[in-house]
């Protein structure tokens, strides 16, 4: 069997179908995008090759592209430094509770991930609506009316509202990964710690947290890449508005292609975007590796 596995022909035959799919489903579209990015195609009729003009504009001149990347960075920041600590906290708490309550909370936290993004996004649009939205009504009811805001329309607040909703939508996954990480920590280690007189904080900082490191690495990598790729909640909640304050790259390139009919430019954005994602992933991986 071992020899068969080492046979080059067998390796080739086993790898080839996957490679074929990868080539046509991933590499070929990226290559075509790169090609169309070098044209002035408007989605209709013939086009001319314009070289790297579109790419130059995306990288050096496009303020909206830059805003979109900064918004993604803000989302990644809040996800990693707000959503994840909270998710980890609740994962530890639910683990400590045990029993039926544990499975109850596990289900509760994961519910938003099971519901369609369209549904949850539209729900939040209604909750945050400043005319009839639940949030402003509650603020009114508890005499905090002065805190009422135009949550999705205010130029300085809209981005944070959107970030909050996206964090809420993704909370279940972050929680579940931490939860399973915590479940994987051998009970003997914690027990040994307790016998040695470690208090709860010491147990967390000396045992749980270090043992969770691989899980944190995976979770943070996922968070950063998914922050870059956000599209549906933005499209459904603000469509990038007001102006371009809540624009994200995927939504921006979609608008460029289908609203502005700048297919070639949208392709250029897509290619630059792929490169940005790749660089980010490599950088994040390297940071973790060097920390390891």
């Amino acid at each position: 069997m071992d020899r068969i596995r080492r046979n080059k022909l067998v390796i080739f035959v086993l790898v080839f179908p996957g490679l074929l799919v990868f080539t046509f489903a991933v590499l070929y579209p990226i290559f075509m995008s790169a090609y169309y990015g070098m044209t002035d195609w408007k989605g209709i009729g013939e086009f001319n090759i314009v070289g790297f003009e579109n790419y130059r504009k995306v990288i050096f001149e496009d303020k909206i592209f830059r805003t979109s990347l900064l918004n993604a960075a803000a989302l990644a920041f809040f996800t990693v430094f707000v959503q994840h600590p909270v998710a980890m906290f609740f994962a530890i708490i639910t683990d400590k509770i045990g029993g039926k309550l544990e499975s109850f909370f596990r289900a509760v936290f994961f519910v938003p991930c099971v519901i369609s993004i369209v549904v949850t996004s539209k729900m939040w649009v209604n909750v945050l609506n400043s005319n009839y939205g639940l949030l402003n009504k509650i603020l009114d009811a508890i005499n905090l009316g002065f805190l009422k805001q135009d949550w999705l329309g205010h130029k300085d607040i809209a981005l944070f509202s959107v970030i909050f909703v996206i964090m809420w939508q993704g909370f279940g996954y972050a929680y579940l990964i931490y939860y399973s990480g915590i479940k994987g920590i051998p009970e003997e280690l914690l027990e040994a710690g307790r016998i040695d007189g470690a208090n709860s904080w010491q147990q967390f900082s000396k045992i749980t947290f270090p043992m969770l490191k691989p899980v944190i690495m995976v979770n943070v990598s996922i968070a950063i890449t998914s922050s870059l790729k956000q599209m549906e909640p933005i499209y459904l909640m603000t469509n990038g508005g007001p102006g371009t304050r809540t624009q994200f790259v995927a939504n921006y390139l979609y608008m460029q292609a289908f609203s502005a009919q700048k297919y070639s430019y949208a392709n250029a954005i897509a290619v630059v975007f792929v490169i940005v994602c790749l660089i980010t992933t490599v950088v994040v991986q390297n940071i973790f590796r060097s920390r390891d």
Binding site: N129, S130, D150, G153, M237, P242
Partner: peptide
Amino acid sequence: FQDSFTSADYGA
């Protein structure tokens, strides 16, 4: 314009 008019779609 109504509150949050920049985030109101046609239906709303």
